[in-house]
Design a protein around this nucleic acid. Structure first.
Lengths: 355, 355
DNA sequence: TTGTACGCGTTATCAA
DNA sequence: TTGATAACGCGTACAA
């Protein structure tokens, strides 16, 4: 948006107007046609060395910047992608965004950021917005269980890569953190460290990963012959209604020796709740986080957690999308990410005799 | 990007092609001219109720979505703003982004996200990108001290609101957190709680707020008649070279009873360093954070910090920009934000006898 | 109330 | 090697 000043005659007299500097201005100044300018800028077609230098000099001098909108009307590419996520204040996302942004930048793509607040209506609105802006692709994270809505949108969507949602539809791609496996491994780790009364907090049944986590937990318990206790399974109905103190007390009342949470912030809050209730972590109770965000290393005790390579996930999402947009064949349409156990200070082996 | 299927005759026979559905398709289908469609979509001009309904039905049915690029070529508004920040993984930013995004959304504006990594080159590139996309406005956070570069860019920039940088130039707006006052108040609080050996970590001299923090600290010390000790002032030369353990040890060696940090993550790390060094916080040493991000409430002990209303700052930035973009007069071109002391558990009054 | 003609800034096609 | 012309999808001024 580099401007040129013009004096214009209007009824009232003379006026100074700012107008965007266009390719025509450069052409006029250089005494050549628009075409030549275009050719120089895009390195397409033959231009004599003399004209090229002349044109480049003028572009430089006047500070001309082409309008990407006008360009994309012709090329049918906007070099923009839409990144939809529920909530950037969830520490799960910033690193992913970082990975996405850096990778896309390297490929000349820019990012439209949409925040959907876990709201389906809004999600649809955002997708439509993205479509109206003619984005080249979409990276979409909507961690809820209602494929139906999404499926109906997909046929009309630009190339899309999903995070944490696997849809087996032609032309749909995804990176999915294996919450089942993560939860299974976490539970197994606790069991192997002598815990039998293992509590678990999971998100609402609407949450895709919540369902999988619970399944992983149950499978691990079953595989080790430990009967489930309903009062050690705490399903939060709404994320924003999570009352950590209440459920912590509840777990304690039911003699949990270890608790599995669904992310590090919840684990951190639970550690505080325990301390406030005069319980030592991990001596009296073990608490596990999930995701391995930086917070998990900043709290005391440092959280034992199932670490996920967030930045790399962002890079993958972007890389996959770039390939699809470019029309390259993707070898893997779906990538599974396995969380890795990272043992720190918030969990502890207990006396096997304790039940 | 809602498509229409076309059968096209090509040399080899017949081919199926997807093409974007345009206003012309709707017009043809409805048996009216494009203009009528346009009028309906934008609620401009008179359209008979019958035609309007007819048109709306067809739009709905075919799922037509206008191209915002084409539209903005005419209207000269893209309804997009660029948000430039150094690093979204810094917990200072997500809440601000949230505030910005929600507010802009309410005004029909969408967000281009650019991450600059504290790199001047990249910052300039991003600004140019934003210009090429014809964004309506820019929200820019570049917390470094080199106004010169920026000043030369400003004349050609779309309306811009700065975060944490005040430039007294006509048509430039800003929201600035008063790091001087914040640091002054933090220091004063510690002094009033009996501390005299107060250490401070500040960012590199290139960092705008770093300079101000140091000034605030020095002023508070001077105002209370406490002589400065050079070895209690620790200027980090590069943010990424920050070695919290080393400086913590150094502070301890120099008998600091309290330490001022420049943000909550650093404070959290320092707390851990102290614990690892067998010092209790706050009994042996008081540590203060800055910003009051959620981390400050999640660590143990909870951090005493200078809280800043991050979400609201995002809202302000967006509100100001919206007004400027709409050509409304801004009463306040600059807004100062004063950090508020939030006392928690990481600081403590000490025996006045101790030096 | 509706339609015609033009322009926005760029690239693609073809001819010179 | 270069230029004229059309096209992209839409909105606006004006005419019908």
């Amino acid at each position: 948006m580099i401007f040129v000043n013009l004096t214009v005659n209007v009824q009232e007299g003379v006026m100074e107007v700012k107008r965007r500097l266009t390719i025509n201005d450069i052409a006029a100044r250089a005494g050549v046609s628009r075409q030549t300018i275009s050719r120089v800028m895009n390195n397409k077609g033959d231009v004599s060395e003399a004209t090229r230098n002349q044109v480049l000099r003028i572009i430089q001098e006047l500070g001309y910047q082409p309008s990407l909108q006008a360009r994309s009307m012709i090329t049918r590419q906007t070099n923009t992608i839409a990144l939809l996520l529920p909530d950037i204040t969830n520490p799960f996302f910033p690193e992913i965004v970082q990975g996405v942004e850096e990778t896309l930048r390297d490929h000349g793509q820019n990012v439209f950021l949409f925040m959907t607040n876990e709201d389906v209506e809004r999600e649809i609105t955002c997708i439509q917005m993205a479509q109206q802006y003619n984005v080249d692709g979409v990276i979409l994270c909507s961690p809820r269980v209602d494929d139906a809505n999404l499926r109906s949108l997909i046929p009309n969507m630009p190339p899309t890569v999903f995070l944490n949602r696997r849809l087996d539809i032609e032309g749909v791609y995804s990176v999915v953190i294996d919450a089942f496996q993560g939860s299974y491994d976490a539970t197994k780790y606790l069991i192997q460290n002598g815990h039998r009364n293992i509590g678990i907090v999971v998100g609402p049944p609407r949450s895709l990963s919540g369902v999988q986590r619970l399944a992983g937990y149950k499978k691990a318990m079953a595989d080790h012959g430990i009967p489930l206790k309903e009062n050690l399974i705490n399903e939060v109905q709404q994320f924003d209604e999570l009352d950590v103190y209440k459920i912590t007390k509840n777990f304690i009342k039911n003699q949990a020796s270890a608790i599995l949470t669904y992310n590090d912030p919840v684990a951190a809050n639970m550690v505080q709740a325990c301390l406030d209730l005069k319980l030592n972590v991990p001596d009296d109770i073990s608490i596990m986080g999930f995701d391995g965000v930086s917070l998990s290393k900043q709290v005391t005790p440092r959280l034992t957690t199932m670490a996920v390579p967030l930045f790399e996930i962002g890079v993958m999402l972007a890389d996959m999308l770039i390939k699809v947009v470019k029309g390259e064949e993707l070898i893997q349409r779906h990538v599974d990410i396995y969380p890795v156990l990272r043992v720190a200070q918030s969990t502890k082996a207990i006396n096997k005799l304790r039940t």
